[in-house]
Amino acid sequence: MSNPDDNSFKDVEEHPLAQIVDEHVEEVEVKGEKIRRKGVYLLPNLFTTAALFAGFFAIVSGMNGHFAHAGMAIFAAQILDGFDGRVARMTNTTSAFGVQYDSLSDMVSFGLAPALVMFSWGLEPLGKVGWAAAFIFCACAALRLARFNTQAEVVDSRYFVGLASPPAAAILAGTVWSWSDVVPSYEVSMALAIITTLVGLLMVSNVRYTSFKGLNLKGRVPFVVLFVAVLVFVLVTVDPARMLLLMAVTYCLSGLLAWGVGVCKRPKVTAKNDNTNKDQ
């Protein structure tokens, strides 16, 4: 009989157990040398799985008419999503598997979940128009995530190109959560369809948004900064749904405002200069 501890199988695919259990194998480069590693890191992927479950819970809650719970679940997914990457970097457990898993989780929690929750709450009376608005948001979230994954190494990390999917989802989730006990009229539903579509299009736009990745939380700050942070926590506690919605809308408008200021500051070529260039 063969020894189960036999290490003669140098390649994982050649091992008999590989025919029973398809174990994840990832090839990484360490000091210029490619090394094959088996398995996945547990801790950061647990946070990603929790965020994925929150998105799934939001969809189920929206289908059952529990819209407040659905909105809260999407915000919970955002908190959990903010931890997985930071935990991976702090514990030096980043991996290509984690990056892809996080992206798929984001698609469910910040693309599919807010679109379906918004449809169940306010877009369903519109029929095909409501379907179209919800699908545009969902498709734009998928395109936004795909573009981010392919451009992560070539764009300035201080900015996002297009509105990120978490704040976009926060606008829809905050709206549903804030007025979860209200049945929207047909006119309000049309306005919601327009908002859903515009927010979706912002995700695939070229408008730049601050990523806050350069924010140094370890350094010293003026006392007033800490006071403002405490004030924000208090306001969120008083009315979490509307305050979180206000923060998401403010962030959304900040990129548009910066884009508008940049357009206004662009040098304008006068007709006189155009004629001078033609003569030359």
Rank of each mutant, 00 (worst) to 15 (best):
200 G>A: 11
193 A>S: 05
24 H>S: 02
227 F>T: 13
65 G>W: 00
165 S>M: 05
205 S>K: 06
207 V>M: 09
211 S>N: 07
239 D>G: 03
205 S>C: 07
68 A>R: 08
279 D>G: 03
61 S>M: 05
39 G>A: 04
40 V>R: 06
277 N>S: 12
55 G>L: 05
105 S>V: 04
185 S>C: 00
209 Y>M: 04
57 F>H: 12
96 A>Q: 10
249 V>S: 06
71 G>R: 12
218 K>P: 02
131 W>S: 02
89 R>T: 08
23 E>R: 09
247 M>K: 03
207 V>T: 14
234 V>N: 05
273 N>E: 15
63 M>R: 04
242 R>L: 13
129 V>S: 08
174 G>Y: 03
63 M>S: 05
23 E>G: 06
245 L>T: 06
4 P>K: 13
177 W>P: 11
30 V>Y: 01
266 R>G: 08
76 A>I: 12
74 I>Q: 13
252 C>D: 02
175 T>N: 00
274 D>E: 14
74 I>E: 12
163 L>R: 06
61 S>E: 03
13 E>N: 10
51 A>D: 10
118 M>N: 06
13 E>R: 12
112 L>N: 03
250 T>G: 11
65 G>R: 01
47 F>R: 03
43 L>I: 15
109 S>K: 11
260 G>R: 05
249 V>K: 08
174 G>E: 04
274 D>P: 00
64 N>Y: 05
197 T>P: 01
116 L>F: 12
8 S>W: 02
278 K>P: 00
52 L>V: 08
85 G>H: 07
27 E>N: 07
217 L>G: 02
213 K>W: 08
244 L>I: 07
100 Q>C: 06
55 G>Q: 12
150 T>H: 01
178 S>N: 05
6 D>C: 09
173 A>L: 06
67 F>S: 01
43 L>T: 14
256 L>D: 07
86 R>N: 12
188 V>G: 00
185 S>I: 00
192 L>M: 09
186 Y>A: 03
125 P>R: 00
39 G>Q: 07
217 L>A: 08
22 D>L: 06
252 C>K: 04
195 I>N: 00
226 L>H: 14
